[in-house]
Design a protein around this nucleic acid. Structure first.
Lengths: 216, 216
DNA sequence: CACCGTACTATACACTGTACGTTATGAAGG
DNA sequence: CCTTCATAACGTACAGTGTATAGTACGGTG
């Protein structure tokens, strides 16, 4: 009765191989047939372990979320929040496919819940009521997701010289009369697209706003 | 050989048709062959007007950005910023495909620049220096993009009863011992995923933080 | 009227995810 | 040992996708 797998495959092995392929070839070029070929197996073999491509995506995402460190226990709550947000961002930068995995599917899975638990626990311990804690959690999550996804997207674009050239071209074709601020701030805009400083700037704005509402 | 007359196509017509299809069938199900069929034309006919699918995406995105209203000129700058962010969010909610169009490609195009110009102009007029204006612009944009994309994504998931049922199931399978905060705050988390209140909550945090840095 | 560039068609290729039916392997029961 | 049976993995097939390449017919200009 023990449903022992035949031989070669397992969920973990498939997830690991899928992750490798996403990182080497990019999340867009990823395909079920690719990971099947990498495993020396027919495409349909994967359907024994995952109902479809999305379920494999979910498994890879949860696997990556499992790599996040625990919340530091011995710090003031704003620093704890900062640490959680920064480590999620760092993980996304180390594994760019995570951005698409997070944005494209609803959150689910054990490890994902663990991360949410960490942040929510910090907010509750800081004294925020249930609604504020939930709202803050959602706000922080969407900020980290949005800003880091954007950063990754732009970095990828910059690596493609053809796309980068055309972006510069359209930027420089803008008339300084119609778009004075855009033209004037173009270098600043390019410089502030991504980077730790940019991320921390927005995060600090959020935390400063949040501290104005500190309870007790 | 019943051949359709010569100049039936145009960029605008293609963009309009593409937008209709994205909104009726969803941005994921959108295909070049679909819009070509809708126009009663072979798939390759579109390549006369757009170099590839991505360029069509860009055109649709820029067309949508053209629908954004101008910045209200007679308000305090925080209210102007709020208005810009809210109208972008509103447009994304009215045209859900815009979320994917914005997230998946770098910004370019005339109308897109116009929107950036509006927000940057407000920030400069408020007295912020070049770097702060650029950073704030990027922060606000990624916040609006991230939070509204997430909201749209979740709303779509909620409409699929099968996916929604499985989401509830995994939520309820979490042990209250391992994930006390998640389990306790589950209803709040569900309630704060999306909605004007949630959006304004995060936006107010950002603006509150920003006002602490008001120049002059 | 002849010409030519342009707008469009036709065909083809290399992919994708996955539904369906078949095979062969490993463990369990006699 | 042999039989039995659930199932892991296979092979085939289908309906799609974007787009490269080559061919065709029309409209405006000489």
């Amino acid at each position: 009765m023990a449903r022992t797998p035949r031989n070669t495959l397992s969920s973990e092995l498939i997830v690991r191989t899928a992750l490798e392929l996403m990182e080497s070839r990019g999340a867009d070029a990823f395909s079920l047939r690719g990971v099947a070929a990498e495993l020396g197996v027919g495409p349909m073999a994967l359907y024994t372990y995952f109902r479809n491509k999305d379920e494999l995506y979910d498994a890879v995402r949860d696997h990556l979320m499992g790599l996040l460190p625990a919340v530091p226990g011995d710090a003031a709550w704003p620093d704890q929040v900062r640490a959680v947000c920064r480590s999620l961002r760092l993980l996304m930068l180390q594994h760019p496919c995570l951005a698409q995995l997070l944005a494209g599917r609803p959150l689910s899975g054990h490890e994902t819940a663990r991360v949410a638990e960490g942040l929510l626990g910090v907010l509750r311990a800081a004294g925020f009521d249930a609604e504020t804690a939930a709202r803050t959690h959602t706000t922080l999550f969407t900020y980290v997701l949005g800003s880091t996804s954007w950063e990754i997207q732009m970095a990828a674009e910059r690596r493609d010289p053809e796309a980068w050239r055309r972006l510069r071209a359209t930027m420089e074709s803008l008339s300084a009369r119609d778009f004075p601020s855009v033209v004037e701030l173009a270098p600043e805009l390019a410089r502030t697209t991504g980077g730790d400083e940019q991320f921390d700037y927005g995060l600090d704005l959020l935390l400063a706003g949040l501290q104005l509402r500190t309870p007790s």
